[in-house]
């Protein structure tokens, strides 16, 4: 193994910028005996596959969003995750290989976040799987980011926080033994019922770039930021937690009616914000939702879909029903989310 004697030229715990992904996958393999890592194809999959005859769930994307997606592989959630380079989609040969690995004879659902590269690479992966294996593949594309206003004149809304809730809920539906069509229907329902909005207090630094992706002055924040540091709706003066919460929750509530149904709410850290601040934010978000007459049935606070070391957070609200709440409560055992087991 190559050992770097030199100090990296950025303040990160890495050996070389170009080996971050491979080195982190080595860490995943070493730390978690319940997971297997195919280092050549950069696939994280379950050490013990689910029972034959059940639908398998495959997701993936650029890395840098941990625990998403590899941290959600395990009983009750994903069967495998394909890892791309940092913030770069994986390639179709990875999706093909992973589809073959996870199929238990009932078909495979691909869960894809709506980014041009991810959508096209997964699309080719599914075409290759159809041509070479005969495995039935269904696809759900997650696009829940309300920050993108002109969705018909752009590549569409980005896939962000709802992806986490979707992987949990749909994972439970697959574990119950529902067929591919039914599992895909739950996935579409979750995507259509979830909305997210994020804020950045700082940029993130991609190791291969070595410098912050964008400049954000000390006294400003970016409202509506994406999980790769894409620009948001606007740059505004830094404000207190209550005001930041208002700027995140209002556009979500303006986009969809969340009253009259149980909701699942996630307050997600983007990687560089301590949990104590996330709880400060959650308190403000909960107050706003209560004032708007919205019933929060379940909540989740923590770092689940991150943007490397970006400081900031995102809010996701999902309009649920009895079935989705039951699936949410079902046992899950992954490195990123675990309960009921």
């Amino acid at each position: 193994m190559k050992v770097n004697q030199e100090v990296p030229d950025m303040k990160k715990l890495i050996n070389f910028p170009e080996t971050v992904l491979a080195d982190s996958l080595a860490g995943v393999a070493a730390a978690h005996p319940g997971l297997r890592v195919d280092h050549a194809n950069r696939i994280i999959y379950r050490a013990t596959p689910k029972a034959a005859g059940k639908v398998a769930l495959l997701s993936g994307g650029g890395t840098g969003h941990e625990p998403l997606h590899g941290g959600f592989v395990g009983e009750g959630m994903l069967d495998a995750a394909c890892a791309g380079a940092i913030f770069t989609s994986p390639t179709p040969d990875q999706m093909l290989e992973a589809t073959k690995v996870v199929d238990r004879g009932a078909g495979v659902l691909h869960i894809v976040k709506n980014y041009t590269g991810d959508v096209m690479n997964f699309e080719i992966g599914a075409e290759l799987a159809a041509a070479e294996t005969g495995i039935t593949v269904a696809v759900v594309v997650v696009n829940d980011d309300v920050a993108v206003e002109d969705s018909s004149f752009t590549a569409g809304r980005r896939g962000v926080g709802t992806t986490v809730l979707l992987e949990k809920i749909v994972g439970a539906a697959a574990e119950e033994g529902r067929d591919l069509e039914a599992v895909a229907a739950v996935a579409r329902q979750v995507n259509e019922s979830g909305r997210s909005m994020g804020v950045a207090l700082t940029s993130c630094t991609v190791p291969s770039a070595g410098k912050p992706t964008f400049e954000l002055p000390e006294d400003e924040m970016e409202i509506g930021v994406g999980i790769h540091g894409e620009p948001g709706r606007r740059r505004v003066p830094l404000a207190g937690a209550a005001e930041v919460a208002r700027q995140l929750v209002e556009p979500i509530l303006a986009d969809m009616d969340f009253t009259g149904a149980p909701t699942i709410v996630m307050l997600n850290g983007l990687g560089g914000t301590p949990l104590i601040e996330l709880y400060v934010m959650y308190a403000e978000v909960a107050k706003l939702l209560d004032a708007a007459g919205i019933t929060v049935a379940r909540s989740l606070v923590g770092n689940y879909i991150t943007a490397l070391d970006m400081a900031g957070c995102s809010v996701t609200v999902l309009r649920a029903d009895e079935d989705l709440i039951r699936l949410w409560d079902a046992p899950v055992s992954t490195t990123g989310m675990r309960w009921g087991i």
Binding site: G84, S89, P90, T91, E123, I124
Partner: peptide
């Protein structure tokens, strides 16, 4: 190209 590039340019030039 499709298997070595990723992103959007790999699938587009590859196709």
């Amino acid at each position: 190209l499709v298997t070595s590039v990723g992103g959007a340019s790999g699938p587009l030039y590859g196709t």
